[in-house]
Amino acid sequence: MNNGCFIYNDTFVHLLNLIYYLIQNHLKPENIKNTLYSPNLLDHVIVLKIEEDSEIIAKIITSMGSFTFRSIYYVFLSSADNKELIIYYLLLNGVKYKEKVLYHRNLKCVEKTINISRYVLHEVHKYKGFLRFKELENHILYAEIEPENDILSMVSHHFQRRLKNEYWIIKDVKRKILSIYDKKKYFFVLEENFSFETTKLSQKEIEIEELWKTFYKTIGILERKNDRCRMNFMPKKYWKYMLEMEEFL
C-alpha cells in the first residue's frame, strides 16, 4: 500500500486522522488529496476507511504545542499545492521533535509551514483592514472578498467581535460561500442556497461613500506622493473591492 495517493474527506480533522494512521502504520504517501482531486493515470489512489475523531486535536496540541497546531491549521487553510503533504511531513517530524519541531528551520517542511502560515495570517490581517461593508436597504451590512486562502472563517471571527450588534454578510467570491452573522453567531451557506438582493442600498449609502472618498483624497500629502509605497502596502488585487480605489483601477 506504499506510494499511493491517499484521499481524505475534505475536513481538517479527517486529514489529521488519516495522517496519524499513515504515520503509525509506517505508510509513506506519495500524495494526499481531498475528494475533489481528479487523479491522473499514474496515480495509485487509495481511500482508507478512517474515522473522523476530533480527539486528535488535543493529542497534537499536547505533544507539539498549540503554536505548532495553529500553524498546521493555517497551512490547511492555504491554497498551497501539496499542503497535505507538508502537514504530513511536519507531523512526522513532530513525532520526533515534539514541541521543538518548528525550531528545525533547516527542514523543508518546517520552512514551508512557517512561510505558508505567515502568508495566511498576513492575508487575514490585510482583510481585517481592507474589507468594505455596504449598507443594504434592510440595514444589513454586506461585503465581498476574494482571498487567495480559505480565510472566511477567520475574518468572520474578527467581525463577530467587532460588529457584534449588526447583521452582516461576507461573501467569498472565489469559493462562492457566504458567512452570515445574526447578532449571535456566524454560519456558512453556499451562495446557491441563499439568495438575497445586494444591489438595493440604504438611502444614505451613496452620501457616506462620497464622504469617505473625499476623506481619502484629502488625507494624502501631495508633496510626499509615493505610488510605489502605496502599492507595496496595498497591492492592486485588493483594490477591486475598496470603494476609494475604484477610480484608480
Binding site: 483592514g129 483624497k217 500629502i221 506622493k225 502605496r230 496595498m234
Partner: peptide, 12 residues
C-alpha cells in the same frame, strides 16, 4: 489595523 493607504503611501 491599517484600513487603507493614502496616495503618499502612509497608512490610514
Amino acid at each position: 489595523i491599517c484600513h487603507s493607504f493614502a496616495s503618499d503611501g502612509r497608512c490610514i
